[in-house]
Amino acid sequence: MDTKEIVLQTLKSSDKPLKTQDIVEKTGLDKKEVEKAIKELKNEGFIESPKRCYYQAK
């Protein structure tokens, strides 16, 4: 799986919105890679940000 898929699966499996650092801790991925994946997933409409710096799957 690529970084985007891992980030999306992590957000889908969470019952609450997660911060970037939460995703980094859960996945062990590099923070810059997670930030890039979040930006791409948000632009593609797979995730949303209910409040600043928190993300959840749509």
Rank of each mutant, 00 (worst) to 15 (best):
D15L: 03
T20Y: 05
D2C: 05
T3C: 14
I47W: 03
E48A: 07
E5Q: 06
K31D: 11
Q9F: 01
T27Q: 01
T10W: 02
E25W: 10
K19A: 13
P50N: 11
M1T: 03
Q21M: 10
S49A: 12
L41E: 02
K4F: 05
Y55S: 02
K42R: 12
K51R: 15
I47Q: 02
E33R: 13
I47V: 12
L18G: 05
I47T: 01
K4H: 06
D22K: 05
V34L: 00
G28Y: 10
Y55A: 03
S49D: 09
K58A: 03
T3Q: 10
L18F: 04
A37E: 02
K36Y: 15
K4S: 11
K32C: 06
T27Y: 02
T3N: 13
V7E: 07
L8R: 03
E48I: 09
E48N: 09
F46L: 09
K4Y: 05
A37C: 10
E25R: 14
R52E: 14
K36E: 09
K58E: 07
E5W: 01
N43L: 12
L41F: 00
L8E: 01
L41I: 06
I23W: 00
Q21N: 11
Q9S: 02
V24S: 14
E48Y: 11
E25D: 15
V34Q: 02
K58V: 07
Y55K: 06
G28T: 07
T3K: 11
K4T: 03
G45C: 02
E48M: 11
K39D: 12
E48P: 03
E33G: 13
E40A: 13
D30P: 03
K19G: 08
G28N: 07
Q9W: 00
K42A: 09
Y54A: 07
K32H: 10
K19N: 06
E40W: 09
V7Y: 04
K32M: 14
N43C: 07
F46Y: 15
D2Q: 05
E44G: 03
E48L: 09
S13A: 02
K51G: 08
K32D: 13
R52V: 14
K42L: 13
K51A: 09
S13I: 00
T27L: 00
D22F: 07
K19S: 13
K58L: 05
R52N: 13
K4E: 13
L41W: 01
T20A: 15
I6C: 02
K36V: 03
K58M: 02
T10N: 01
K16R: 07
K51F: 15
K42M: 14
A37T: 04
L41R: 02
K26F: 09
Y54F: 15
Q9Y: 01
E35I: 08
M1R: 04
K19I: 06
T10G: 01
K32S: 14
I23T: 05
L41A: 03
K16F: 07
I23G: 00
V7P: 04
E25C: 08
E35N: 12
I38N: 06
E40I: 11
G28W: 11
Y54K: 11
S49Q: 15
L11D: 01
E40L: 13
G28S: 12
L11G: 00
E48K: 12
K32V: 11
E44A: 12
K12T: 00
